[in-house]
Design a protein around this nucleic acid. Sequence first.
DNA 1: TTTATATATTGCAATATTACGATAAATATA
DNA 2: TATATTTATCGTAATATTGCAATATATAAA
Lengths: 109, 109
Amino acid sequence: MGATKTDHFTDKQNDLSVLLKALAHPARIAIIEYLIKTEGCICGDIVNELPLAQPTISQHLKELRSAGLIQGNIEGTAICYCIDEKTWTRLQKTLNQLFEKIENKKSCC
Amino acid sequence: MGATKTDHFTDKQNDLSVLLKALAHPARIAIIEYLIKTEGCICGDIVNELPLAQPTISQHLKELRSAGLIQGNIEGTAICYCIDEKTWTRLQKTLNQLFEKIENKKSCC
DNA sequence: TTTATATATTGCAATATTACGATAAATATA
DNA sequence: TATATTTATCGTAATATTGCAATATATAAA
């Protein structure tokens, strides 16, 4: 035990949970906000910006990337990370469907 | 180590991460979808609906509730769980701000 | 080629999450 | 009061996450 039982849920439910999990950490939210804020998505600055050690940031970037929320391009010694819009569009659509259903349903409690 | 360093992030970042974390599990997404789908948010049926044991469901319900995503009202021996719309509105607003910023920014990679 | 810089990986310790059996608590009904 | 039903809690095992020091890797510049 201890591992999530993904087998029993739909692909859509699992896909959404993977995206949300990738975002569900303040450091990763801060990274996304930083990538939005900065012009040109210069990257290694994230380490200077956030109060975490370089390996920790690297790990968070890896998680964001493997979920498809960001992309990384090599630029010399540096790496340019930026938002991967396709995935964000998918996330937005899925969540908006959920939000809409909730709005249209009057709660009973 | 092992614990998230919430101190170093803003209240907004921490608040969002708590809400996303509560949703970031396929079973909890399935619970929310079930509560949306069913008329009158009858509750204990969730245990019959999902492929998880009763204590596990109870634990997931507790997490959803402590994040404020659902509410529980006692109805005889049963408990009526349903969506807590206030929190969902807050989540929707915060995420839409993020989505909007991402749409308006052209990615560089 | 050597050195400096930027990022990733490894290894590990601390903590959190997931899941469930056993059991407790609370209430309705007989 | 005794019994059945519903939900919560406890205890525990398995696994995942978080964070960092040490180190590796890769590329640019000297």
